[in-house]
Amino acid sequence: MSFLDLDEFLLELAPRVELVFSPIMDVKEFPADVDLCLVEGALCNTDHIEMAHKIRRLTKAVVAFGDCAITGNVSAIRNQLGLGNRENVLQRAYMESAQLNPCKPALKGIVPPLIERVMPLHEVIRVDYFLTGCPPHAERIKSFLSQWLAGQKPRLQGLDLKFG
């Protein structure tokens, strides 16, 4: 969402980049020869890991985008609950916390198998850039993308590196 806060910079961006894969696009397969990929979110299930490896294989520069991708952040809080395994996670989420109709997703193929421990992106693949923030502020994204578009190795510093 904070990407949308880029406001008019989005218009500036539009003619210079080709958006080839995104949750808001109807593209099923991650394309090849991608120049830059902003990866959001921590890795929680086997699909995420598979996807991360695919992204790494097909992308020149991978950016861990936001605190979840970099630290695990709130999505990794389940690690410290000591739930131990995915069954317990599902139990907590779908049964204990449910206000009505407690039921665990049972059908195969609906919910990808959860991994035991939520991981930041760089634990699984090589990450070229880290864009911190929860969410990363639009100004920070803009600064990063402008440098990258100008052909530089983006460098952020000071408050632009702040978590949270």
């Binding site: 760089h122 090589r126 990450v127 990063f144 590196l161």
Partner: peptide
Amino acid sequence: EMPGNEECLAGVSGQVS
């Protein structure tokens, strides 16, 4: 290491700082 991922976890190379 998995192909294309050799530098994964290798440290400080190539990051923003």
